[in-house]
Design a protein around this nucleic acid. Structure first.
Lengths: 208, 208
DNA sequence: GTTTAATTAAACGCTCCCGTCCAATAAGTG
DNA sequence: CACTTATTGGACGGGAGCGTTTAATTAAAC
């Protein structure tokens, strides 16, 4: 008795699956959910339209699957904290730098822009995105600051609030410009100097 | 000689013009540019489709006109600074409160969400929006802080940076939640206490 | 009342695309 | 080999919507 294992068949082509998801991402991010064309996605992925419907049933499912896949990828690319011991300021500057580079990357900006629009129709995807990206980063920052407060390097305070202050100070107005202006232009406005200034002010506000 | 003044004609109905723009806003914000239907807009505005084409030539123009109109409205609703003399802390708290209320209002969030997506196709509208809203508010804040620095109530520093720090600290992670989660839920997370905490940290960092 | 322009309803040509169906082929397993 | 499943290209029905045209109506200016 062959438990569920079908005996003779042609296996699914995983490469095609991936190609579909990649093309879907480009198409959906370019046109948005409603105006994206499954036929264009199929063509771009060098795949038959029927294959897409075999894998994903319909447009909604394809979109959700694509977002899930992208979230997984994003998760893997989140900036990490270094384990090494280093001065607090250096640690914060490094994290802030990695964070800003991540947030201002074209992929993330595109994702951010499109998801914002689609969230009204797909609230659950908004939560998915939040949990895969922003909230994770938030949690990392909170723990990091709580730890430093514990060690006495920062004034004791609500680490959640402190994280918000740090995160916000570093971002400043930059994210608004990223979203609504030419990202290349906007990215240039974030200098190492401005970043360090934010960190230094933060350290001043939270000095022991 | 009647210089350019046409002699006998039926004047344009401004009320219809406005009704079209209002319906266009609802439709475009609901469906996005590509999937918005001019026929639905016409129906919602109790207007013939041809009238829309007479006024706005095509979909692109209608969209641009709508955004321009909304920006003008938004401009008028920006929080203002009070002229009265009051303690610095009170002044900042008031401004921050007005700002957060403005930014978290459903209209603004809807506008923000949709515009983010459309900017890739209409970069000039992104600039229009930035100039009508965020950059104006930024400028106000910068001038306000520069003035306080001049008066010696705040430590001398780059007012542009200080504005970014204040604005960012107050926003914290809230704007991300607003954009990608249920705005009603997210709005509740912004308390007066958290707002005042941000202001107090800012004052600490910029104390003389 | 005459003139001019705004507005209307209806229909049209055109394009696009979702989701389904079908017959044919490719690619693995036993 | 036989068998089973994946994949393909093409075609179809159905719907939607843009932008245009037409002929008729309306409303103000003269």
């Amino acid at each position: 008795m062959n438990t569920g294992k079908r005996l003779a068949h042609r296996p699914v082509d995983r490469a095609k699956q991936d190609a579909i998801l990649a093309s879907a991402r480009d198409e959906f991010f370019e046109y948005g959910f409603e105006s994206a064309s499954i036929e264009r996605i199929a063509a771009a992925a060098n795949v038959s339209k029927v294959t897409i419907y075999n894998h994903f049933q319909n447009k909604e499912n394809l979109f959700s699957a694509m977002v899930g896949s992208e979230c997984r990828i994003m998760r893997g690319n989140l900036p990490e904290m270094s384990d090494e011991e280093m001065p607090l300021r250096t640690e914060l500057v490094n994290f802030a730098q990695a964070m800003m580079e991540f947030l201002s990357s074209p992929d993330i900006i595109r994702f951010d822009r499109r998801m914002a629009a689609e969230v009204e129709r797909h609230p659950e995807l908004g939560e998915l995105f939040l949990n895969a990206g922003p909230r994770l980063m938030q949690k990392m920052l909170i723990e990091m600051l709580a730890c430093e407060m514990e060690k006495g390097k920062l004034a004791k305070a609500n680490p959640q609030e402190a994280a918000a202050h740090l995160f916000g100070s570093v971002k400043g107005f930059a994210d608004v410009e990223w979203r609504f202006s030419d990202p290349e232009k906007a990215a240039a406005s974030v200098t190492t100097a401005s970043l360090e200034a934010a960190i230094d002010r933060f350290l001043l506000a939270y000095s022991t």
